[in-house]
Design a protein around this nucleic acid. Sequence first.
DNA 1: CGCGCAACCTGTCTGC
DNA 2: TGCAGACAGGTTGCGC
Length: 309
Amino acid sequence: MPELPEVETIRRQLEPEVLGRRIVGVEVLDERWTRPEAPSAVERAVAGRAIEAVERRGKYLILRLDEGWALVMHLRMTGNLLLRPADAPAGTAADLMEPERLGAPRLYESPPELRHLRARLELDDGSELLFTDARRFGHAVAMRGDELDAYFAARLGVEPLSGELTAESLLELASGRTAPLKSFLLNQDRIAGIGNIYADEALFRAELHPLSPAGSMRLEHAEALREGIVEALELALRNGGSSIDDYRDARGGRGSMQDEFLVHTREGQECPRCGSEIRRVVVGGRSTYFCPGCQTRLRRRRRRKAAQR
DNA sequence: CGCGCAACCTGTCTGC
DNA sequence: TGCAGACAGGTTGCGC
């Protein structure tokens, strides 16, 4: 599902293509896309405006527009944002589903299903941004820039790939938390951008048990977790994100990070570090994959040391 | 306030 | 073969 690496991959692809372009048309095909606002409110706020920046914050993708406006999009679980290049033949939504009908070549290697098209943004060079979403959880909001900053300040924690995340700051964020480490990582208001996939991969790298209380970490654990988070996210970025199911990048391509998973979706397979069998448990209602052999519970660790003596 | 869980959705897979 | 039910997970909102 789209987490930080997937959204950042899309952002990096879009930026050089759409920066400085003007949005000349907005078509919302699914009114849920703008919920709770009416589609017309978003259309009015966005249409005719120039794109001044393409940003990401956590899992949100932001188009900063002229006169202080911003269009904020979230892909949730099955959302995709696809760029239709200017030189590709234009068509209706139906034509886009089957470009062959226009006598046009395939535009994309492995595009999301355009039958789930929810909105189109037409740019002044003839290109288009297409938002597709099978499950209709994805959405878009038009906001003033200052409103947006307040919105994010209230909801989102530190960016894990910025210098803000250190062992000390992580320890402080986790201090007093009784929630399991897995839930702590999924909570966007402490650290922003980690979802179910990279939480599992980060905890495995850090050799930490997903059920250990977040507040039981000591500095060495926080440092290991910080490293695990950064390694997992950076490897995912180098691989263009994970395409387990629906995710496609802005060019309709698949990421390859799913081939690099160490534990996520690997139930029953051998741990690449110690050879134990990888297990799946449910934490906070989410499938959680971990190695019972080398991801130790923080509480047990002391007892084990004591027992060894 | 922190935590856990249901709800929001629909496509896909599983089991009878 | 058909169909009911489980499952997938990011975020919000609610109850404890």
